[in-house]
């Protein structure tokens, strides 16, 4: 097995996270924003696993499992909200969803 250091893992995690953030901020389709959100969560899970391996500490892997569970729950709730939103508004373009005005 190829032994990888901590740094490359963190770099990949950072890249994934950044791509995710940019996706959330820039993309206009609601579903793509959700996917970007997932990317951010997975980036965090990756970082946890990397640290767990580097410090030989199981806590990080446990945390990664938590992240996956929470992500799953969040996706379930979020996608049902998206479906409801689509049913009433007939759009998933964020430009058209501006009801949260001040």
């Amino acid at each position: 097995m190829v032994s990888v250091g901590l740094l490359p893992v963190l770099v990949v995690s950072l890249l994934l996270f950044t791509i995710g953030v940019v996706g959330v901020l820039v993309r206009r389709n609601l579903l793509v924003v959700f996917m970007s959100l997932e990317l951010m969560l997975n980036a965090v899970a990756l970082a946890f696993v990397g640290f767990a391996r580097a410090r030989a500490d199981m806590d990080g892997q446990v945390a990664a499992l938590f992240v996956m569970a929470v992500a799953a729950a969040e996706v379930a709730v979020g996608l049902s909200l998206v479906i409801l939103l689509f049913r009433t508004r007939h759009t998933t373009q964020l430009d058209d969803l501006t009801m949260l005005k001040g």
Binding site: V24, L25, V26, L94, T98, M99, L100, K101, G102
Partner: peptide
């Protein structure tokens, strides 16, 4: 100014 609407 602050809360114009777009969620992003």
């Amino acid at each position: 100014v602050l809360q114009r609407g777009p969620v992003q």
